[in-house]
Design a protein around this nucleic acid. Structure first.
Lengths: 206, 206
DNA sequence: TTGTATACGTACCGATCGGTAACACTGTCA
DNA sequence: TGACAGTGTTACCGATCGGTACGTATACAA
């Protein structure tokens, strides 16, 4: 769940590769944890710097604003998300149905953890409905890419209507993220992989 | 989307039937609209009273706190939600599959509206992850009841595994709420009814 | 007319919000 | 040695947060 060291420079300043200040990493690590677990709006910058053991000026030297810090958190989340996704994909080369099943089995397991808090991307989009908000922009980009990949995988499976199946899988995934944090242990999210496989079976060309 | 007059007394003070002050209704109406469209944490009590044309003491005479006002908003949302749900149910007596299809067709249409903001219950649960928060309590109760009813309907349909199908439908519904506000027009939520029907077909005893 | 209760408004509270100005200290590298 | 980047310190800003003490207006009953 924590950002990895080698990605910090990319995440903090959106691409330029100068050495990242030391304090910035601690700030982003703490912000990542707090934003994810308790929500972005619920956390003030004072709490972040306090728990990171730094001061506010250090935060504002590395991040232009709290909104941009939130966007940086989500860019890190994006990297972590695709790492998990690609692990499932790479485990079953050439078999998109097995890839989906592997990914969703893992999602289903994660939703059953005691303090599961859903998808950081999804949550951020709920917290910031205004179009163009820095955090929302990152979130929307992640979801559009996920949709594109799911539709491509549905096509590779030979679905009767690939876009329909891809979107159906996306709905199940988002539903798992949300109901995972709403119901906790024993909730509907545990059945996401099975339901997805049922939907896939029903969507293949006969 | 607005609370109805006849429900205000129930909603405001959680059951006791004394006459509700006149200002309380305006406050709840305005809070309903603002909380739903822009989020609970994003709206301050000052903005609510200003747009309601009243003053803060009036708010705090009818509602013990902002958190309780949020809970009142969700109690009203609960009434409105079940009204919509039961309209779809009543339109197809004795035919749970058609009931689900009717409800989801309507949900799918709503998600395509320009400023669709998802489900107020779901959004509130994302905004308030702390267990026991007044708003979250209402939200969780609503979702548990929805799960119960969906599972009962799946059973009435004659599903091979009714709980599995009921939970699958819940995942699709929550996915539609979220992706509706994430993708907007043309997003995956428009296909929720079709995907649900596919899943139902695949889940019936052969 | 007066008493009483209820609803409403003015003005204010301390705390926290995101964000900044100014300056001292430290380590690195030329 | 000197320059410089990064960090720390302290103190502060105006705005807004949720919430309240207290006086006033209005309605109805006696």
């Amino acid at each position: 769940m924590m950002p990895t060291d080698r990605n910090i420079e990319l995440t903090i300043s959106d691409g330029h590769a100068s050495a990242a200040p030391r304090a910035a990493k601690k700030i982003l690590d703490v912000a990542y944890d707090l934003f994810y677990r308790r929500g972005i709006r619920a956390i003030g910058v004072d709490e972040i710097v306090r728990r990171a053991g730094v001061t506010k000026p250090s935060l504002y030297r590395s991040f232009p604003s709290k909104d941009e810090l939130a966007a940086s958190y989500l860019r890190q989340y994006d990297l972590d998300f695709w790492k998990r996704f690609d692990e499932a994909v790479d485990a079953h080369p050439g078999d998109p149905r097995a890839q989906i099943k592997a990914f969703l089995t893992r999602v289903g397991k994660r939703t059953q953890l005691p303090d599961y808090r859903g998808c950081g991307m999804t949550n951020a989009a709920v917290e910031y409905p205004e179009r163009g908000h820095p955090a929302r922009v990152v979130s929307e980009a992640n979801k559009h890419e996920l949709r594109r990949r799911l539709r491509a995988m549905a096509l590779a499976m030979g679905a009767t209507d690939a876009d329909m199946l891809g979107d159906g899988l996306l709905l199940l995934i988002e539903g798992a993220y949300i109901s995972g944090q709403l119901f906790g242990l024993g909730g509907p999210a545990q059945s996401v992989a099975t339901n997805a496989d049922l939907l896939i079976e029903a969507s293949l060309k006969k």
